[in-house]
């Protein structure tokens, strides 16, 4: 790291920021279109001319023009800070997720650990939003988000530990390099647990109780307007990007594939995109779980499976040594 010049640092930061602004929009547009076609609709068709490709840009321009309302009884500073707290962790996470051995925003040795840590911080933004809004629905949503975080962070950390154990390193680059197709079977339960827990962390269907619109309006984001609301939405889609890329790197070998040396980064993005489409697919197909079902799934199924996966990985590592 010390070998970097200032210029290189700035360039890398700009590149990460660009990816952070472009990839979530790409996922969002994919969601618009895939969801529409899964429901027998066309989705946006006008913005930008060709099949509504600029719909999310138009949405962004609209959000900028909206008034930024802070409720009178709200905790103003926490209310204003919350979208940033929700958004920035995903930016940090995106910076350390490698697309290929050389294509990474910042080289960190224990990047898997760092990613898990900052993703946990993102939920605090939701909590802050819910608490600061002075709205009962916001508070309920925030409490649900907190309960979800507590339940699903544990199996997620356990399965990442399992992968790290299998690879013998906490570096995401190292994990992806240690990956072999054999892992698809060996780490399959862990992969499933990671995917389910990731969905829950992102508060995506079927784990979107924190923003359950039919019950608590829009949960912690009820009182938000304009750009701050857009930031929360951006955080959600950035979260999908981060989770999908993380899954691709941890369980699908990241850049592993034909001509990995030259177009490896494309493989990582492609795998991530497929996973993002699966996330969207779930949203279209499934109803929302009930809050108690959510907790039951986490503690009765995911945590035991994750522990079992950890044990299987440990046995495997010892046997292969």
């Amino acid at each position: 790291m010390s070998g970097l010049t200032w210029l290189e640092v700035v360039l890398r930061a700009v590149a990460v920021l660009a990816a952070f602004l472009v990839l979530p929009l790409l996922v969002g547009q994919t969601e618009h279109k895939v969801m529409a076609h899964m429901q027998g609709r066309l989705g946006p068709m006008y913005a930008g001319g060709f099949h509504g490709w600029a719909q999310l840009l138009a949405d962004g321009i609209k959000f900028v023009q909206k008034e930024d309302v802070v409720p009178a009884r709200a905790d103003r500073s926490a209310f204003r800070l919350a979208p940033g707290v929700a958004l920035v962790p995903y930016l940090v996470a995106l910076a350390v997720i490698p697309l290929a051995p050389g294509v990474v925003g910042a080289k960190v040795d224990a990047s898997a650990l760092l990613v898990l840590a900052v993703i946990g911080v993102g939920i605090i933004g939701t909590l802050m939003a819910g608490w600061a809004s002075a709205n009962k629905y916001s508070l309920l949503g925030a409490m649900r988000a907190a309960a979800q975080l507590v339940s699903y962070e544990l199996p997620m950390v356990l399965v990442v530990a399992s992968v790290a154990l299998a690879a013998g390193t906490l570096s995401l680059v190292g994990i992806a390099q240690a990956w072999t197709p054999w892992w698809l079977l060996w780490q399959l339960p862990g992969a499933l647990v990671f995917f389910v827990a990731g969905l829950a962390e992102l508060q995506r269907v079927p784990f979107d109780m924190p923003v359950a619109d039919s019950e608590i309006v829009f949960g912690p984001y009820t009182e938000y307007t304009g750009l701050r609301f857009a930031f929360f939405l951006l955080a959600e889609y950035a979260g999908i990007v981060v989770m999908a890329l993380l899954f691709a790197v941890l369980f699908l070998g990241g850049w592993a594939g034909p001509w990995a040396a030259t177009v490896g980064w494309l493989w990582t993005l492609l795998k991530g995109l497929v996973l993002a489409v699966v996330v969207i697919w779930f949203r279209v197909s499934w109803p929302r779980l009930r809050e108690d079902q959510l907790q039951r799934l986490a503690w009765v199924w995911l945590v035991p499976i994750a522990l079992l996966q950890l044990a299987v990985t440990a046995v495997g590592v010892v046997m292969m040594r």
Binding site: V34, H37, M38, Q39, R41, W281, F282, V284, S285
Partner: peptide, 13 residues
């Protein structure tokens, strides 16, 4: 449910 939505996606809107 997944099969239904996937099938719908392949059909005409």
């Amino acid at each position: 449910g997944l099969a239904t939505t996937a099938r719908t996606m392949t059909r005409h809107t």
